[in-house]
Amino acid sequence: MKSLIHHIWIVLYKDFLLEIRSKEIFTSVLIFTILEILIFNFAFNPSPEMVYIVVPAILWVSITFSGVIIINRTMQLEMQNGMMKALLISPMSREAIFWGKSFATAIYLIAIELILLILLTVLYDLNSPLMSVFFISVPCILGFSLVGTVFSVISVNSRAQEILLPILFLPIVIPIILCAVNITSNLLIDLPLSESINWINLVIVFDLIYFIIGPFCFYTITSD
């Protein structure tokens, strides 16, 4: 167990070190997401009553698009120079590689979500419990990252990797996005958390399923 946690940490640390050195993922995706939010802002211009319906949709559409780019790019970096092979033939377990990559993606997305929430608050003059939205989004983003990591291993080996990932991944992750939009919407209109309990339970079940079967799928895909 100690060795597993240690190896997950090594993968995470390496991903962040790569990002610090290359600035390829977080910075570019953040700029892309801010532009996305601004385009939505110009396109919708919602009335005050509509804001609480529109904002959750904008938030989660932006996170979904950013997530697809991040997941694709982080896995592409592993495929360069035969790095994935080096990891797979090392004594590190495949669970550690899978969870390490998933957590790295989740941390990028959580950071992006935090910035998006601040931006949306400014743009739409929101007066809602944003910290609750932020904390409740963490399990949604985790589930999103776990599923994404599984599918990125499939897509990254194909020629049409950039288009294949969203085609494979988005239909599977729709339940998480649906839950996330509903939870965010309920929180923004100041409904108590108990109103969203079914959605939250669904997210937790989804996370647990992918937390358990994710490494197994990863193992199967990366074997031969």
Binding site: L18, R21, L77, Q80, N81, G82, M83, A86, I89
Partner: peptide
């Protein structure tokens, strides 16, 4: 095992 492949198995950006 120590493996040296066609590819260097090293991170380009590190």
């Amino acid at each position: 095992l120590g493996v040296l492949d066609h590819l260097p198995m090293l991170y380009d950006r590190l």
